[in-house]
Design a protein around this nucleic acid. Structure first.
Lengths: 247, 247
DNA sequence: CGGTCCGTTGAAGCGGATCAACTTTGGTGG
DNA sequence: CCACCAAAGTTGATCCGCTTCAACGGACCG
């Protein structure tokens, strides 16, 4: 819950500058390099993130006094003015030089929290779990090994699911040859490409339609059990417009 | 996505100390004052937040090299060791003195991101929207006025819902006298207590069971339309164990 | 005054929650 | 070392809330 006061005292506003945007204007765009962070003097700004699958995720709304665009490297999100807006821009370099050593933990925690935002709140159980597993594997630097020292309930409470759903989805992953269970608290990723595709981080391999197959997997209503043979899916190109990009 | 390197160079590790926890141990507890932040040398830690309604939300898992507990004031979450764990604790005071002015925007952004985590990914559409409206009102300092300069699609994409659901839920709120629509892009909150209760931030007023009533509202299947008369609900004490605390 | 966009409302289907039974695991003590 | 027990995971059946796909209405703007 952000407060409504000035973010930094005036003496730190070295080379701070005012920017005016009118309704619909773009403050910064996803993919651009980060040069400044902004403080809202008046107006409303919306930040959103477009995933590889085209889905949009609105990451925040910012009102008078709020701080936005605090990141480094490349913009992970786009900021647009929802109304005529007056911003105070702060050069990131000035901030960096004074606190480059110290604020690192804050930034890392911020990145971590923001990446978690993309895990929860959107997408099916398969997508969330795939993203979760991919995230763990990436953070540990191991391509295929995914330790799960937490309980299924922990995972469920983290992703906004329930324990039975987590179980079913993992079993479905395994039935499709995406992962293998090693004991109770470890996975081995057999098809990282499909895992990332399910997570929405990259496009699906052309040879399969994992999401449709996995959907059918979790709910074994149809008796067409031809799945144990082939790892993932037949060459069905029938994309049911499942959760494609909005127009 | 946090990296796996040391959070800060050694010269900043003034009075850094190692802490060892065994499986199940509590690193810090929700509500305690914040004195340190931690860096994981080995093991796994889980952070979770208990809401007023008793629901638990697992906010993150932290592995080797991750940073956790970066906040100020009182702990908003509890951290527990999922395995035998070795931590490196950093006094917050040392970090503060060097960067008290500069890291403020990072902290505010972090708080903002973390609070957003509690909005999405859990709870019904009513809960998410209630929390969203309450959040806007709080941030603007106005108890009752809630401007909505963003489209319904924006709100939906932010909360992990869809535009029709947002519409229906707002109308349901209005039918219960919780809010009133002023034009298209502004709300007036008539019953802040119920709004906060729906958001899970505090207990319900004893005289009503808003959640049950609102559920029935959104889906007008039953024709028992006695709702326009009394603001919220009759004195039904029939709590259907809806989303109560887990044991 | 007409057109277009956005919001609202309706009907139908599905995904995940819920409740409950069963199985497995891991830990403990005999 | 094995038997037992408690805790966790898996599986099944049913239900409900949200999504989806439409159609309608209303507001803003030319």
């Amino acid at each position: 819950m952000t407060t409504r006061f000035r973010a930094v005292p005036p003496e730190v506003d070295w080379r701070a500058f005012k920017v005016r945007h009118h309704k619909g204007g773009m403050v910064f765009a996803q993919g651009q390099p980060v040069y400044h962070w902004f403080e809202i003097l008046s107006g409303v700004v919306r930040t959103s993130h477009i995933k590889a699958d085209g889905n949009r995720r609105v990451t925040g709304f910012f009102f008078n006094g709020d701080v936005l665009g605090v990141e480094s490297g490349l913009r992970t999100e786009t900021a647009e003015a929802l109304s005529d807006t007056l911003l105070l821009g702060h050069p990131l370099a000035a901030t960096e030089s004074a606190a480059s050593l110290v604020d690192t933990p804050f930034r890392r925690a911020l990145r971590c929290a923001q990446s978690t935002l993309f895990l929860v709140g959107r997408g099916s159980a398969s997508e969330r779990l795939a993203a979760f597993f991919a995230s763990i594997a990436t953070r540990l630097g191991s391509t295929d090994r995914v330790p799960l020292p937490m309980s299924r309930d922990d995972i469920a409470d983290h992703l906004g699911l329930t324990s039975p759903t987590v179980s079913r989805t993992i079993v479905a992953f395994e039935r499709h040859g995406v992962v293998t269970r090693i004991g109770r608290d470890e996975l081995r990723v057999l098809r990282p490409d499909i895992l990332l595709a399910l997570a929405g981080e990259r496009d699906l391999p052309a040879d399969c339609h994992a999401d449709m197959a996995l959907r059918a997997m979790v709910r074994p209503s149809d008796s067409s059990e031809s799945l144990t043979a082939q790892p993932i899916a037949t060459a069905h190109t029938v994309q049911p417009q499942d959760k494609a990009a909005r127009p």
